[in-house]
Design a protein around this nucleic acid. Structure first.
Lengths: 245, 245
DNA sequence: TGTTGTGAACTGTTTCACAGCA
DNA sequence: TGCTGTGAAACAGTTCACAACA
């Protein structure tokens, strides 16, 4: 570790968490998923080279990422799979469930609401909201769709910590404001707009149109290069991930 | 510009495209969307400060991003909105349509297939594939769902340049290989697995589970900090974007 | 011996600050 | 005068290479 350990502090204090680079956090989640698969396959230990190979990252980068959470591998051997898994869950804050609210039950919202992977991964869908009277009152996967006006009351009551916005663009800012009012401090935005939030709110964005345009850019570049890979070409560029169909 | 202009080369040559940083490409797509809205609002010109404000980036960064595509703003005035829009479209390779194939018509696949924003933005959905006999043969939004075995033939024939994978994890690699065989060189992966592709294939990933885990990490950190924003807190962290519900 | 953990070098990105121009 | 375009500085993230050690 870079810093001398504080007397009496353990390895999952705010000190440590605060210092993990954003880019590493994203990869830690990927390592965690792979460790789950390794556990199923009955693996006891895994080396940084092996784990790096299956997650598609550079082994040195993986070791550095793990060093941020102070994981102790065994030199000459590797990492104990289930111990590392546990450590990653702690570091990512997956030890307590995070209730999720989803606003906007359109095309994408339906898909998200029907996605089984949330509760399984510690993110139970606690509430669904829409503004359409035809949708309010129906159940999706056993969850009642409520009116957006109920967001503040319902979210506070059910202690929602994460909000997902899958509304049309023009409605997103209003919905976002309601979530913030309700005390939601982390928001995942699927609407194609730039949301304004107070400093203390964490906002992430998933923008399909942008993803496609980035790919289109690479198609264009490749064509200009006569189909030859350039220094920028090849392999995974982004790392985010995974909604099962 | 940094490099002396080549005689006879115009501003959208491979030379220039090759040198745009990856991070800038993602933001150019966001600027382009905002310019579209400005055009609708009848704006003639826009300054870097204004455009930066609505897209949530630093004005200097925006100007540097635009400098990569050699855009000529007018000093003392700003950028001519529609000229800039046109230049961005060229730089991002949006001047010719890119046919898109979508594989996996499950929960998410349905949502993607039903999303109207593709064709409108120059990405017509040219083919849908699934392995489920109950789905093969039906139409979604007027597009026939075909069997995955038909991927190589159909994709080559319809000159598909971009593939989207929305299958369950275990099926994704096989589908990916088929797309690559069919000559698809850009793939957007929604399945929660790490795909292996040849060097010349551009792969991007959208992973919802990871997005949520990153948010969970921030919830955890915030709680440890006693609810006070830290240096890392606040505002947009990621920038990708936009599937309307 | 084989693999971790990490300083140090490197590469890429962001921000600053200001010269240059309409 | 006001805003763009861009060197240069600062910062962040990645990769290298090797000492430390089970």
């Amino acid at each position: 570790m870079t810093k001398p350990p504080q007397a009496g502090s353990d390895d999952t204090t705010a000190e440590r968490l605060r210092s993990i680079p954003e880019a590493s956090v994203a990869r830690l989640a990927v390592y965690l998923r792979m460790l789950g698969e390794l556990v199923e396959q009955g693996a006891e230990t895994v080396s940084s080279d092996e784990l790096a190979a299956v997650t598609g990252v550079n082994p040195a980068k993986l070791r550095k990422d793990l060093s941020y959470i102070g994981s102790y591998g065994i030199r000459g051997v590797g990492y104990e799979v289930s111990a590392l898994q546990h450590r990653l869950e702690l570091a990512l804050g997956l030890n307590h469930r995070q209730a999720v609210a989803l606003v906007g039950i359109g095309n994408l919202g339906h898909a998200l609401a029907g996605y089984g992977g949330f509760s399984g991964r510690g993110f139970p869908l606690a509430a669904l909201f829409d503004i359409d009277p035809d949708l309010v009152g129906i159940h999706i996967n056993g969850i009642l769709v409520e009116h957006v006006d109920a967001i503040p009351a319902v979210c506070s009551e059910r202690e929602v910590t994460i909000g997902m916005i899958a509304t049309p663009g023009p409605a997103a800012q209003g919905v976002c404001d309601l979530l913030v009012t309700a005390g939601v401090r982390c928001i995942l935005n699927f609407a194609p707009v730039v949301l304004q939030v107070p400093r203390e709110v964490e906002l992430r964005k998933v923008d399909l149109a942008v993803e496609l345009q980035i790919l289109a850019f690479h198609v264009a570049r490749r064509n200009l290069n006569g189909g030859q890979p350039s220094s920028l070409n090849g392999h995974v560029v982004n790392g985010s991930g995974g909604l099962e169909a």
